[in-house]
């Protein structure tokens, strides 16, 4: 039945923890590979998830990432507690970033994170409350409905 969850897992992401940043996405990639999802789809999910995970590490205090695999799609929901996004339209613009110089030196803050997520996702929803946090919901289909 479409929409039935085959697999679900929740992960905690700590803001500012660059040592661990990316571990969640590596685990999700490994799960998708192990169940035989097509490698082009796995790459889309891995890239979108990694950018979302890095966004929490770079910009938020902490966040939860929920991963759901259904017979037709992969759903990733990332809810963080942090400063939120003041202007979502601006944040979606390629090249726009509020990351610090220190984070740029680590290879992040190119202002491509959110556009990369959107580009790889079939469904993309982003809502935010300044001073509270941000909610990102994406879906990526792995089978034609």
């Amino acid at each position: 039945m479409p929409g039935t969850e085959l697999y679900q897992k929740e992960f905690f992401i700590k803001g500012g923890d660059f040592d661990k940043a990316g571990e969640v996405s590596t685990e999700i990639k490994s799960i998708l590979k192990s169940v035989g999802i097509n490698s082009d789809i796995v790459r889309k999910v891995a890239i979108a998830t990694f950018e979302a995970e890095m966004n929490v590490v770079i910009h938020a205090n902490e966040g939860d990432l929920k991963f759901i695999l259904t017979p037709v799609e992969i759903r990733i929901t990332v809810k963080d507690k942090g400063k939120g996004i003041e202007d979502i339209e601006l944040a979606m613009k390629e090249g726009y970033s509020t990351a610090t110089e220190e984070m740029r030196e680590m290879g992040f803050g190119a202002g491509m994170g959110l556009p990369n997520i959107k580009k790889n996702a079939d469904g993309f929803e982003l809502t935010s409350e300044v001073g509270v946090g941000t909610l990102l919901k994406i879906t990526i289909r792995h089978k034609k409905a």
Binding site: I47, F50, M106, G107, F108, A110, M112, K119
Partner: peptide, 24 residues
Amino acid sequence: GMMSDVLAFAQPGALMITGLTNSQ
């Protein structure tokens, strides 16, 4: 040197060249 630029144009089998040596 920007990881998102690499991810934006990801192509399987490419050689990634970067000056950034962190785990990311």
